[in-house]
C-alpha cells in the first residue's frame, strides 16, 4: 500500500531533482553538440553546460521558468491507494514551491490572477502493485510554439514536412537546441498526450524515421538560441497510435534544451 505522505514526499523530491539536475541522456547529447559546433553556437552550448553545473552545485533551478509541473502517475491496481492523487499532487507542488523553490507561474487564464503553482496530472491505471511517477516541469517558451494539427488522410506523406515547419516557425523562441516530441494518430486530445509522453523517453534512442526528421531539422540552420548553427534539435521522439480512418491528428510538443524530467517507482 502506498501512503499519501510517501507519494507527496516523492513528488517534491522529483520536482527538485528535475529543476536542478539534467538527466545523463540529455547531458550526453548537449556535450556531443558542443564538440561539433564552433563560433557562437559553441560558446552558447558551453554557457548552457556551465549553467547546468552551477545549478547542480548550488542546488538551484537551472532556469527561472520553473514551468508548469506536469506529473504522470501510473497507478498499479494492487497499490491500493486510499487518497486523491490529484489533491496530493497539488500539495506536493505547494511544498516544492517553497522548498526548491519554484517561481509562482500559474494564473487564471482570463483574469491572469496569479494562483501560485498548480500541476497538470495525467493518471492511468495499470497492472501491478507499484506507483510509477514521472515529473516534467514544462516552460512556456517551448510550450507556446507547440502545435496540434488535424491533418487529413491524404496528408500522410507530408507528416515530416509538417513537423519540420513547426520547428521552422518556432525559430529561436523555444531555446534551441530543442527536443521535438511528436504524437501521430489517436484523437485530438490523445495526439497531444502522445507528444508529451514521447519527451519522457531516453533521448539517445531514436529510430530511422526520427533520425531522418532530425537531420532535416538540423539542416534549417536555426542553431542554438536561433543565432545560427548545425544544432537546432537534439532529438526527435515520435509516438504513434491508430486513428479514425477519416483523420490524421499530429501534435508537435517542443521542449527546450533543458529537457527536465525525473522518475521514481514507489510501493
Amino acid at each position: 500500500m502506498v501512503r499519501r505522505e510517501e507519494f507527496i514526499e516523492t513528488v517534491v523530491e522529483l520536482i527538485g531533482r528535475a529543476e536542478t539536475e539534467l538527466g545523463e541522456d540529455v547531458l550526453e547529447l548537449l556535450r556531443e553538440a558542443e564538440k561539433k559546433e564552433d563560433g557562437h553556437a559553441k560558446m552558447i552550448l558551453q554557457s548552457l553546460l556551465k549553467n547546468v553545473e552551477i545549478a547542480r552545485e548550488k542546488r538551484v533551478p537551472m532556469c527561472q521558468d520553473t514551468g508548469i509541473p506536469v506529473i504522470f502517475v501510473d497507478v498499479g491496481i494492487d497499490a491500493k491507494l486510499k487518497f486523491d492523487v490529484y489533491d496530493a499532487s497539488r500539495e506536493a507542488v505547494r511544498i516544492a514551491t517553497e522548498r526548491v523553490p519554484l517561481r509562482p507561474n500559474s494564473v487564471h487564464p482570463i483574469t491572469r490572477e496569479n494562483v501560485g503553482n498548480l500541476p497538470i496530472v495525467h493518471c492511468r491505471l495499470v497492472e501491478g502493485d507499484k506507483v510509477r511517477i514521472a515529473v516534467m516541469p514544462k516552460g512556456a517558451g517551448s510550450e507556446n510554439v507547440s502545435r496540434q494539427m488535424m491533418l487529413l488522410p491524404g496528408d500522410a506523406r507530408r507528416i515530416k514536412d509538417v513537423i519540420v515547419s513547426v520547428v521552422k516557425e518556432a525559430g529561436g523562441k523555444p531555446c534551441p537546441p530543442i527536443f521535438v516530441g511528436v504524437g501521430i494518430g489517436g484523437t485530438f486530445d490523445e495526439s497531444a498526450i502522445l507528444a508529451k509522453r514521447a519527451l519522457l523517453r531516453d533521448v539517445r534512442k531514436m529510430n530511422n524515421f526520427e533520425l531522418e526528421i532530425l537531420e532535416e531539422i538540423n539542416s534549417l540552420g536555426i542553431g542554438p538560441m536561433g543565432l545560427g548553427g548545425k544544432t537546432t534539435a537534439l532529438a526527435v521522439l515520435v509516438e504513434t497510435e491508430c486513428c479514425h480512418t477519416a483523420s490524421l491528428p499530429v501534435a508537435v510538443n517542443i521542449q527546450c534544451w533543458a529537457n527536465r524530467k525525473a522518475f521514481a517507482v514507489i510501493g
Partner: peptide, 11 residues
C-alpha cells in the same frame, strides 16, 4: 541575446 535557460548562470 543572453543564453536562454541559463538562469543559474545569469543569477
Amino acid at each position: 541575446a543572453f543564453p536562454g535557460g541559463a538562469g543559474a548562470l545569469a543569477a
